[in-house]
Amino acid sequence: MAAGGDHGSPDSYRSPLASRYASPEMCFVFSDRYKFRTWRQLWLWLAEAEQTLGLPITDEQIQEMKSNLENIDFKMAAEEEKRLRHDVMAHVHTFGHCCPKAAGIIHLGATSCYVGDNTDLIILRNALDLLLPKLARVISRLADFAKERASLPTLGFTHFQPAQLTTVGKRCCLWIQDLCMDLQNLKRVRDDLRFRGVKGTTGTQASFLQLFEGDDHKVEQLDKMVTEKAGFKRAFIITGQTYTRKVDIEVLSVLASLGASVHKICTDIRLLANLKEMEEPFEKQQIGSSAMPYKRNPMRSERCCSLARHLMTLVMDPLQTASVQWFERTLDDSANRRICLAEAFLTADTILNTLQNISEGLVVYPKVIERRIRQELPFMATENIIMAMVKAGGSRQDCHEKIRVLSQQAASVVKQEGGDNDLIERIQVDAYFSPIHSQLDHLLDPSSFTGRASQQVQRFLEEEVYPLLKPYESVMKVKAELCL
């Protein structure tokens, strides 16, 4: 049975990233139509530049190519590739079939990587351009969430054990800070992308030097003109047959890092959902379990974690691919890159769409948070109580021993009897502590235990987050809708 299948058929496997999760716009960027249309555009740009620099290419040939950029006979191309065992030459023939007058000058002087690699770089750039505003929107939604809850005390956790208090907004800023680093890295790697350009079979530009009869300047002009037509500021000066596969490492490393950030955020949300302090959106008709109707599973956060793990592992592909590119190139890269580049971007696209949807509907339960604080705060307040007693004339050592005994009794009630923490009640009825009984409410005010959390939130948002989001103001209103 021949390899390949009808990918629109229910009898043929289709990647869930495309069929179930990723956005239509990201799927289109990695589609065959987008790819092969870009090949034709690159052939047109090459012909236009070659004509401008004096090669015998007519206006009629150029116009014929322009008129057929979208006229792609995919069936013919597939048949040609089956016959020739070469995808680029299959599309040269297919393009030439609908451009008979231009057929002889299509791909003039070029090698397969002229269309293959340059198209990949265009796709990487455009895919990054799709991700950047999506990530900015996630940051914006979380920034709104953090600002609104900047002063809401909550129990902090280290080692997932109760620690000092923080605020809900401050905790959210930990998430935002990681995503801001990801946004900066995505922008950097996007701006650092260079075009492969017009380089020939081993990167020496020998074929173009021959076409222009040894004119170095025209060869350099050709490279520059096509690079500018493709919208790049610069091209690699040095290439082998391909652009260095280190570029793929750079791009997928940034995406993998984004995956790590999203995994951490969504894990926190899942843990908070278990504590009943916070939940992701839950639709009115949504079913959490087929057997347990009360369940409210954090399905979206779980999906993000599941896909983020996949995204983090994909960076190993370009690392290994770059390491086995012998001399000017081997074909070890080809099949692998067809999979890992598309999957990385479709996965990143999915987790950003999902995280935006989550961040637009996060639900906080202040009463649950308050109750958990009441359970733990008495123990945390013991040092403040000791200091207040010393100020009232008591002995630190005597007070410490009193607190120690009462704390152990209260802990026994919590752990052995399943009761509430009654340390404060014990202190309130103990005559030894009568000098500070009137101060206990103040000493137990949760806001006095959150330090500068709310001020940190305000400063972080104003100095770091809002300036970073400013270039994306025009796209901030787009909502994230999930079908599944």
Rank of each mutant, 00 (worst) to 15 (best):
G4P: 10
G5I: 13
G5T: 15
G8C: 15
P10A: 14
S19M: 05
S23R: 08
F30T: 07
S31W: 00
S31T: 12
Y34S: 12
K35G: 03
K35N: 10
R37I: 13
W43E: 06
E48S: 06
T52W: 07
P56G: 11
I57P: 01
I57M: 03
T58W: 09
Q63G: 12
L69C: 14
E70L: 15
E79Q: 11
R83D: 13
R85N: 03
R85G: 02
M89T: 01
A90G: 14
T94G: 10
H97C: 10
A103P: 06
I105W: 01
I122G: 02
L124F: 14
D129V: 08
D129S: 14
L132N: 13
S151F: 07
G156D: 00
H159S: 02
H159W: 00
P162D: 02
Q164F: 06
Q184V: 14
Q184R: 10
L186I: 13
V198F: 01
K199S: 07
T204P: 04
F208M: 10
F212W: 10
D223T: 03
D223K: 01
T227Y: 10
K229A: 07
K229N: 04
G231Q: 09
F232R: 01
A235P: 14
F236E: 01
Q241S: 02
Q241F: 04
T242Q: 03
T244E: 00
R245H: 06
K246I: 03
E250I: 06
A260T: 02
D268A: 11
L275W: 13
E277V: 01
E280H: 01
Q285L: 14
S289P: 01
M292W: 03
Y294H: 01
S301H: 01
R303V: 02
A308Y: 02
M312F: 07
L314Q: 13
M316H: 12
D317S: 09
Q320W: 08
A322Y: 11
W326S: 04
T330H: 04
L341N: 12
E343L: 01
F345N: 12
D349A: 11
T350A: 14
T350D: 14
T354G: 15
E360F: 03
V368W: 02
E370V: 07
I373S: 02
I373G: 02
Q375W: 02
I385S: 07
I386N: 06
K391A: 15
K391R: 15
G393E: 05
G393L: 06
Q397V: 05
K402V: 05
R404L: 09
S407W: 03
Q409K: 12
A411D: 05
K415H: 06
G419I: 15
D430R: 03
F433Q: 03
S434R: 13
S434L: 10
L443V: 15
L444R: 02
P446Q: 01
S454E: 12
Q455R: 13
Q456Y: 05
Q456T: 05
V457T: 12
Q458C: 15
M476A: 15
K477P: 15
K479S: 12
E481W: 07
E481I: 09
